[in-house]
Amino acid sequence: MGPVDYIPRIRDNYARLGYKAYNWVVNPDTAPWAPLRKPLSQCRLGLAASGGIYVTGQVAFHYKDDTSLREIPTDVDTKELRATHFAYDLSDARTDPNVVFPIDTLRRLVREGFLGGLASRFHTFMGGIYSSRRVSEDLAPRLTARFLEDGVDAVLLVPV
């Protein structure tokens, strides 16, 4: 069976529910390109994930156009991680956050020498921000600034 076509399914579903049609972002241009400058085994990797992960003690995300960021120290105890989100089934992420925030997986890849290292912090937020303009003009620049501050050689992005 081929991949699920989410755009038509969501479009039909919204129409059935009487919601306004969602304007999907379509970029027909050529995407920007920055080549990797050294082998992965020497790269320091950054991560941002939109599955609503936070550390217990932090203020949790809310569900309405939340563009705030949380810093997750990369030496965090995985047991301290929590998941909150309005749009996906949280049951697996709450028992193993690695399904949307691959913290243990990345630490293992560093131990194995596959990756050179990790940024000292990762970044999380709540996806499902309705306005693509808010993402492009507000969230994306803040994340890019943090990656530049973190001095990473490459960035992995994990949506849900």
């Binding site: 920055a34 969230l139 990656f147 992005l157 994990v158």
Partner: peptide
């Protein structure tokens, strides 16, 4: 997340997007 990728890449940092929604990411 693709919008974040494009912004960060344009600033000179290579990015990789994971995805489970092929059509949304292609768009």
């Amino acid at each position: 997340m693709g919008l974040v990728a494009r912004h960060t890449e344009a600033a000179g940092i290579p990015t990789l997007c994971m995805t489970s929604a092929l059509d949304i990411t292609r768009a």
